[in-house]
Computed example of a mutant assay.
Amino acid sequence: MIGSRITHRVADGVRVPGTWRHAFIRNGGSYFLTDLFVYADGLVDCWGLVTLDGFEEKLRTGWVATDLEAGARVSAHEMALWKFDEPHSWLTPELLLAEVRDTVEQLNGRPDSTDRCLAAVDAFLADRTEENRATAREAYLAIPETQRHYALGDMDRKDWQLQVLVAGPGGYPEDRPDDPVTQEAYDSALAYFEQRDRSAAARAARVPADGPDTPFAPAIHLYQTFVREPSDDPGTNALRNDYPAPIDLGGVTYASVAHAYWALSVADPGTRPAVAAEDNAHAARTLAADAPRRDGWEQARTAVLTTLLRAKYAQHPALAEILLATDDATLVYDDMDSCFWGDNGGRGRNWTGRLLELVRSELHAARTGFTLGETGGPALA
């Protein structure tokens, strides 16, 4: 179960998603509590990257340990050292391997053993033959034993109703191998699944009160460009801060948002006109970088850029239309000079993209007649 344990590694410049769990490594007769990293490409880091076949070998040889010996030394790096007294493990090599295989499926958005079981249950409920029940029971038993009680997502009754359903009247559930399922218990399980299906259908049909949680439009990547002249059809290049779209701030005209940003960042008012007058945004940044920043610039810079973006799209309606046409897409902005402003292959914070999405939302609000009122933002001078 991945939950909130989300990580990644970079391979050949590609971000490979992953997760982790605790595990014991046995080396030289001692045990070490560590993190076992599992990645979407099927590699597992257990003090070294191995394939799933390699991981199975590590389990077979006891390098990744599921059998814990009483009296053995154990350490958690730089935290604690102790000995096992009466150790008990819920895992076997087979169970841990099955859990890791399920994790790889989850990381890739593919059905895992639980999903396959629930699909088999749906097939049985649609056509209640003993053959379909046997298939559903086999799929249930294929779920790692440590994960079965999570299968229905019911933390009160766990997987009991699932055990009863796949066993059938007169059959024996896994948790009570000496207690056959009665017709009453079976009917109750059927009613449970019928209600579960009705609840799922109702959730699927429900319109979120505050709109969708994820964008309906595909993400748009605003790649690094060096546009020197405006275009009649700039496309999303127009959304770049260095695109030549002059903005007026308090009677001072800047050739682009980037020119304004770098001129305003400089502490010396006498240097700002020279920065603003540079031929292109790159030159403006270079000149500004050699001058001291204003006090508190790091804390103010996101508010400054927000104001500049508002000015750009208010003063250039055609460019505002280009921004509005991105709908609710995630805007991924590249900035080779800054991992603060750019996404840069997942290494940056993408603040420019996020602020563009904010300004886009404000433009949508204005178009629908929603009045935001005065923001009371800082004056830029």
Results as ranks from 00 to 15, higher is better:
T19Q: 11
R294F: 06
K83H: 13
E194K: 13
L107A: 09
V64I: 01
A284V: 05
R301P: 12
N280L: 02
S265P: 01
E56C: 07
R360D: 08
D12N: 15
N350I: 07
R301V: 04
A325C: 03
L363Q: 13
L68I: 07
L309H: 06
D115I: 03
Y39F: 15
E374W: 11
E321P: 00
A23Y: 06
V104I: 10
P218Q: 12
N108G: 13
E298Y: 12
H8P: 02
V164S: 07
L95V: 13
S231V: 06
F84M: 01
V164Q: 11
S199W: 06
P215T: 10
R148N: 09
G71Q: 12
Q183W: 01
Y140P: 06
A277G: 12
G71S: 11
V359H: 03
L52T: 10
L141S: 02
D154S: 11
I2K: 10
R198P: 00
Q161R: 15
F55I: 05
W341S: 15
L96A: 13
A134C: 04
P234G: 09
W20M: 04
A245Q: 01
Q183C: 02
A303E: 15
G296R: 07
Y140W: 12
R294M: 11
T92V: 10
L33F: 03
E78I: 00
N237L: 01
K312L: 01
R285A: 13
L43A: 02
G18S: 09
R128L: 02
T225R: 14
G71D: 13
